[in-house]
Amino acid sequence: MTGLGVEIKGVVKKYGTLKAVDDVSLRVSPGELFGIIGPDGAGKSTLFRMIATLLLPDSGKITIGDRDVVGDYRDVRSVLGYMPGKFSLYQDLTVRENLDFYASVFGTTVGENYHFISDIYRMLKPFEKRLARHLSGGMKQKLALCCSLIHRPQVLLLDEPTTGVDPVSRYEFWEILKRLSADGMTIIVSTPYMDEAYKCSRMAMMIGGKVIKEGTPDDIIAGYNGKLWKVSGREVYGMLLAVKAYCGVVSCDSFGDSLHVVVRDDIEGLRSYLREKGYDDVTVEATKPTVEDCFIELVRDGCSDR
């Protein structure tokens, strides 16, 4: 399959006085797996809905290949698959009925394109007669993905497809996305999971309706400003409060069983401060930032009104 590129140029969408999407320009190449991350209210879903022809931009232009999402919306819909953030299935239809319904809406049949989704649908097949509402989170997401793929789109839009999905199912879901992308499909996906963002070929970070950073995950990480230290010890929450109260701290965030800390001056100051506070089993070592560190840094710098 040859995917289509997506070009977003100077797109603006206002709700009343609020600029939900504020002059966004992005270019996604055919076959890319492109991630969009940002805090809630950043404008990600609004952007998705405009690409999906469901919402008109106030200004700017979005093209899928050479089709304009406003002027050629019918053509666009035939080449586009869209999986919205909220559960998009009909709860009181069975697995198979949902799939048949979506196929018929797009003027095709499940039989015609079955080979295209068979890898995913195989996992759902034993539950064909089950009502969608009785599926677990992971299964629902796989069915929703099948429904958005059944007309063989060249561009796939996924708005937080793995929210509420357990780590193993999430992993499986992303393996499927990587395969589709390797086959040439263009995929744009938003996610609140930073480990997923890292799996994208490129990504954009949105805050307050604007794209404030764009690049490969490694580019984004390379743009991290501070010198990052990992502080580990037994009592993480106690340490978190202690480090936050330390006068030389720039930032301190919990990362699972440790803290990621940036200090103003020498790290020795923090070491002896922690010893004074009675944390003597603490290890402090330099560490590399992750996409999550970058996210936190950008959100902190970018919208102090939160």
Partner: peptide
């Protein structure tokens, strides 16, 4: 915290 961004989760 399903769907909540990394800052808000903390």
């Amino acid at each position: 915290t399903g769907g909540v961004d990394p800052m808000a989760r903390r």
